[in-house]
Design a binder for these strands. Structure first.
Lengths: 227, 227
DNA sequence: TCGCTGGTGTGGTCTGACCACAGGAGCATA
DNA sequence: TATGCTCCTGTGGTCAGACCACACCAGCGA
């Protein structure tokens, strides 16, 4: 076993044994190196890996916020991996969009009408109404809206995957806005569709919600691709 | 920007600019450190990250197989992340199983009847028929069968996600076999269900394939949970 | 012709050092 | 006593340089 993997193993075991929980601080790098019998460089390689896996967060200095603490950001790892594999063209943007449709359709169908995340979604609708909102900001809130709906299903894994997918094609989606004949007009359509989707979910019309969100996503990409 | 992130950026740009492709060898760690103006330790931290993201593979020695080469294993990163977050109990096994059902249902519905991956799936059916096959080996081939079906959709992202999900709950699934009243009997049922699923896909009965695979998966976990 | 042996370049690892940072203890002062 | 500053301490961030195990391969010798 390579020495940095000792760190991964150790952290996984500590987590599984409940000796380490989200929010806890890890021993310092120097202490961990001594405890595990490896060099500080090896410890740092392991911690770096756990950081991109969305499991740790490091901070310098002292006091709260400093040191290496356990967090829970599964979307980070998936997002980073997708970005890289899209760059290597091993994955195609089409596949990401298709997967997004698959996950979002399920999310809209299975979102609970009384989930607290829907309040966030409703608030985001208002924030997307702001006049003169730039496309990047609009799309960020748009993404948050979709993630909120996924969160309303109560399945954090689907939420994380959706957030990752959306993040990985952020640049691509943004570039598409410049090909649209009339962004303002498209934005208005998106706003109306968002409201219809949310209304369907809140009314418990699950099939309709799924159909609306599928059309909402594919419609956007098709409009931009046709331009 | 932290120095190891310079490596991530550099690799992503090289990939995007087609100066680096799957199968290529990276410059040596020492050369890369000098070129990027950072220490070798920083380079190694970056390479370690890209390794768990399933983008690189390192080998010592010289000749073919040595050095750091670009690969494409997106499932690796997702799998590693899921394992860690399951250990931290931020993700629940139930959610993973639910997500698996969602992805597999879609895969069975969208698998192409003439995809070459179905040949692999058929071969795996035979390998699962071997007499006296131990549960771990059976389940590994079972997993490969399901991944092959996902591959038949032509969407490598869905395949990667499915493989990751399955891998992350491998220990859990294996532990369930010991709770079953009669593993041999269950295995026979699974074999028959596999054949029915594959037949439905090859005959183009998409809805039936989706229903069968959903029942196949949920049935297994429910039988084990009820025992 | 065959077999060994050394050279060479790769990643793997370690040691020890210095830096920037942020909090907190303690002191000097009003 | 209350206030403000200064220095100490521990954190992660980074670096330079060294040595190791490994695997190939050129070149030498039998």
């Amino acid at each position: 076993m390579r020495s940095h993997e000792i760190v991964l193993d150790w952290v996984e075991r500590e987590l599984a044994g409940h000796r380490l929980r989200v929010g806890d601080r890890l021993p310092g790098e120097r202490a961990l190196a001594e405890e595990l019998g490896i060099s500080r460089a090896a410890v740092r390689e392991g911690l770096r890996v756990l950081e991109v896996l969305g499991l740790l967060r490091s901070g310098v200095g002292s006091g709260p916020g400093a040191g290496t603490v356990v967090v829970a950001e599964p979307a980070l790892a998936i997002g980073a991996a997708l970005r890289m594999h899209l760059a290597s063209e091993h994955l195609r943007t089409d596949d990401v969009v298709q997967t997004r449709v698959l996950l979002e359709g399920w999310a809209a169908r299975n979102a609970r009408a009384d989930a607290p995340q829907l309040d966030d979604a409703r608030a985001l609708l208002g924030q997307m109404d702001e006049a003169g909102l730039a496309a990047p900001l609009f799309l960020d809130r748009d993404a948050a809206f979709h993630v909120a709906i996924a969160g309303a299903t109560g399945n954090p894994l689907v939420s994380a995957m959706m957030a990752s997918l959306r993040e990985s094609i952020r640049d691509y989606t943004l570039a598409l806005t410049e090909r649209l004949p009339d962004w303002e007009r498209t934005a208005d359509r998106l706003r109306a569709e968002h409201r219809a989707i949310l209304a369907a979910i809140e009314a418990g019309r699950r099939d309709e919600a799924a159909e609306l969100i599928t059309a909402h996503i594919t419609g956007y990409y098709e409009e931009a691709a046709a331009s």
